[in-house]
Design a protein around this nucleic acid. Structure first.
Length: 219
DNA sequence: GCGACAG
DNA sequence: ATCTTGTCGC
């Protein structure tokens, strides 16, 4: 499945596809050698009918931007909690495919496996591209957790019953935490470590901040 | 039946 | 997510 593949339009069909794809998610150590980290974010226009995805690639460890790409695609279905990836991924894949390089790690806006069927947008993207991905949510979709301490780097496990599905991570002292979860080919520790390592002076990791700006920039 | 609900 | 300027608070 790529940017030009047919995407489900029916919610029930989309949920069934998520359940199938979730079995392909692989958690494990993050890539050993990381030199290029990409941030992905999506903005909308035309009353939500057009998705505008932005990808910014930065070099590790300096986080200097080395490439950026933007792509627009019509959105297949309206926003439904739990089905976000079907709205954003067509545009995201388009942007990634047009990139003249391959990132070693991809930070994605939204959840990884911290999802009802364990296939948030970051996990979905990882499974269909093979990229190592990490989900970075600005709020909670599912799961319960304690409130992390006030300082930068403080965290609490995000749980769904007895299963750990992510990390609630304070990336800046005194501000709302981030809901971080593995997408594909990373584990809980690696996901939280990489997100924190990419946060400089702001709540959001630099690659996602940059993609955020690009995606919402008025053409 | 009544809330909750990524972006 | 998006519609939108100034404004309350540390």
């Amino acid at each position: 499945m790529n940017a030009t593949t047919e995407w489900p339009t029916d919610p029930a069909e989309a949920r069934a596809l998520q359940t199938r794809l979730a079995r392909k998610v692989r958690l494990g150590p993050a890539p050993e050698s990381v030199q290029l980290i990409a941030g992905v974010d999506t903005g909308f226009a035309d009353a939500g009918r057009t998705a505008r995805a932005a990808v910014v690639v930065m070099r590790w460890p300096g986080l200097e931007p080395v490439a950026e790409m933007v792509a627009e695609r019509p959105t297949p279905m309206p926003y439904v909690p739990g089905l976000l990836s079907f709205r954003e991924l067509p545009a995201v894949l388009d942007a990634l495919e047009r990139l003249a390089m391959t990132p070693d790690l991809v930070l994605c806006d939204g959840q990884g496996i911290a999802h009802p069927r364990r296939l948030g947008i970051a996990a979905h993207l990882g499974v269909i591209t093979g990229f190592a991905t990490i989900g970075v949510g600005k709020s909670r979709l599912v799961g319960t957790h304690a409130e992390p301490d006030i300082g930068k780097g403080a965290w609490a496990p995000l749980m769904d019953g007895a299963e750990r599905i992510g990390t609630v991570l304070r990336t800046r002292a005194g501000v709302r935490p981030l809901w971080v979860s593995p997408g594909h080919r990373v584990d809980h520790d690696g996901a939280a470590d990489w997100v924190l390592a990419c946060c400089r002076r702001y709540r959001l990791p630099e690659p996602i901040r940059a993609a955020d700006r690009l995606a919402s920039r008025r053409p």
